[in-house]
Amino acid sequence: MGLLFSSPAAAASDDGDSHVLAIHSKDAWNDHSQSHGDSSKLMVIDFSASWCGPCRFMEPVFNAMAAKYTDVVFVKIDVDELSEVAQQWRVQAMPTFVLVKGGGEVGRVVGSKKDELDKKIEQLRS
């Protein structure tokens, strides 16, 4: 899964009071991805775009899930900012939620299907 990108400007930031890590550079994604690599902890990646209506609908839902499931890592990636990362994960529609454990994909939810996403997180987080 390793990406070979380098950029001197790595930017990862928390979205306000949220438990969601917003990643804004390939370098920051590489660092986060490598540090999570072999972890048995579930990571949920929200691939979205600022102009996407269903993505905006899911944003507060995703933030609420991050607050609820504190044992899960929640990451947000804007597909326009990090299109190469989105391509790596074969994101073709938005929002796409990729669930990752041990560096590999273990689940995926495409679209604003909050109940399906919640159910998959519940199943895969232990």
Rank of each mutant, 00 (worst) to 15 (best):
M1E: 14
G2A: 15
L3D: 08
F5K: 05
S6F: 15
S6Y: 14
S7I: 10
S7W: 11
P8M: 14
P8Y: 03
P8Q: 13
A9H: 10
A9L: 15
A10L: 13
A10N: 10
A11C: 08
S13R: 07
D14F: 08
D15T: 13
G16S: 06
D17E: 08
S18W: 06
V20A: 06
V20G: 00
V20E: 07
L21D: 01
A22F: 05
I23L: 07
H24D: 05
H24R: 10
H24V: 01
S25R: 00
K26R: 15
D27M: 11
A28K: 02
N30V: 13
D31W: 11
H32A: 15
S33L: 13
S33P: 06
S33G: 09
S35N: 09
S35P: 08
H36L: 12
G37R: 15
D38N: 15
S39E: 08
S40Q: 15
K41R: 15
L42C: 04
L42K: 09
L42E: 04
V44P: 05
I45S: 06
I45P: 02
F47T: 05
F47C: 11
S50V: 13
S50R: 13
W51A: 04
W51M: 05
C52E: 07
C52N: 10
G53W: 02
G53Q: 09
G53Y: 05
P54M: 00
M58Q: 03
E59H: 12
E59T: 14
E59L: 14
V61K: 04
V61H: 10
F62M: 07
F62C: 02
N63D: 09
N63F: 07
A64T: 00
A64Q: 09
A64S: 00
K68H: 05
K68Q: 03
K68I: 00
T70A: 01
T70D: 04
T70H: 00
V72Q: 03
F74D: 00
V75F: 04
V75T: 11
I77V: 11
D78V: 02
D80C: 05
E81K: 11
L82P: 14
L82M: 05
S83L: 12
E84H: 06
V85K: 07
A86Q: 07
Q87I: 12
Q88Y: 08
Q88E: 02
W89N: 10
R90M: 09
R90G: 12
Q92A: 09
Q92G: 12
A93V: 10
A93P: 07
M94F: 06
M94T: 04
M94G: 05
M94H: 08
M94V: 04
M94N: 10
P95V: 06
T96P: 08
T96L: 09
V98A: 14
V98F: 09
V98G: 08
L99T: 06
K101T: 11
G103A: 12
G103D: 06
G103M: 12
G104S: 15
G104T: 15
E105T: 12
E105G: 03
V106A: 08
G107L: 03
G107E: 03
R108S: 05
S112M: 01
S112P: 04
K113F: 02
K114W: 01
K114N: 04
K114H: 01
D115Q: 03
D115V: 02
D115L: 01
E116L: 08
E116H: 05
E116D: 02
L117H: 02
D118A: 11
K119T: 12
K120I: 10
E122L: 10
L124H: 13
R125C: 02
S126Q: 11
